[in-house]
Amino acid sequence: MIEARDLTKRYGSKTAVDHVTFTVQPGIVTGFLGPNGAGKSTTMRMILGLDKPTAGQVTVNGKPYAKLVTPLSEIGALIDAKGVHPRRSARQHLRAVAATHGISDKRVDEVLDLTGLTEVAKRKAGNFSLGMGQRLGIAGALLGDPKIVMFDEPVNGLDPDGVLWVRQLARRLAENGRTVFLSSHLMSEVQQTADHVIIIGRGKILADAPLQEFVRAHAREGVLVTSPDAGGLAEAVKAAGGTVQAVDHRERISVTGIDAREIGRIARDNSLWLAELRDESTSLEDAYMHLTAEETEYRAGVPTGKTDTAKEASQ
């Protein structure tokens, strides 16, 4: 479990993390989302005691990081895949890290095997591809069989196999009762992996909720209708109390306020040609975009701005 209270980090006049309070629970995968520069990496560095908070505190399994006796068995972190000496081999790098905790060479070989690096273990880490570097970082994080794993952008640079592998690993670790905390830019990835999301923007927590709840609260739930008679159908739907938005395609509209079944009936009653009728996917990406758009508008002081609703048209 990771607990941050009022955690704040300022670099000069720049506030990177701004009075952040959250708890990362064991047994689930928690996604840590936010745009570039939101403060994700800074928060993670403070969790690991690398950066000193300007204010507030954060504990790992109840203790400040510096007080952990065997930190690698409490939390395994991948912070920066390039944070390895480029002229040392992968295996020797891991042996050096393992030595700080008296972890055996057998365990080093185990994590190399687990991350698929056995064959390249003797190669210099500087010659690794981005994906291999990520695997090496993950191997290092798993060395101490930690109760918590924390990965900053773990799928960055991984091929589809690698992405699937990280997803399975994260799920399995959480199922076994560990705390899993992942930051990512890839919404679809987080949607498939996380149970809970913490969203940070400009150093502040914007949302902290179970994934499904967050998506339901912020995603638009509309029905996508394709019809060669889109104009007429839009009129009929509006007459029945629905709200209509035009989408990219001339024959396509998005309807809210009336469900798909009812739209089908309206089309039949008005003898309108219906080519396609389906519920719009309510994805994390949509929800995230809506939330951050709201934030942007709020900050810019233009609450009626047309950031995402510019598609709105009066048909």
Partner: peptide, 17 residues
């Protein structure tokens, strides 16, 4: 380069630190 399907972090015995 392919990684083993992850079971967990400990395929073998307990990791001593």
């Amino acid at each position: 380069m392919s990684a083993a399907t992850p079971t967990d972090t400990t395929p073998g015995t307990e990791v001593v630190t």
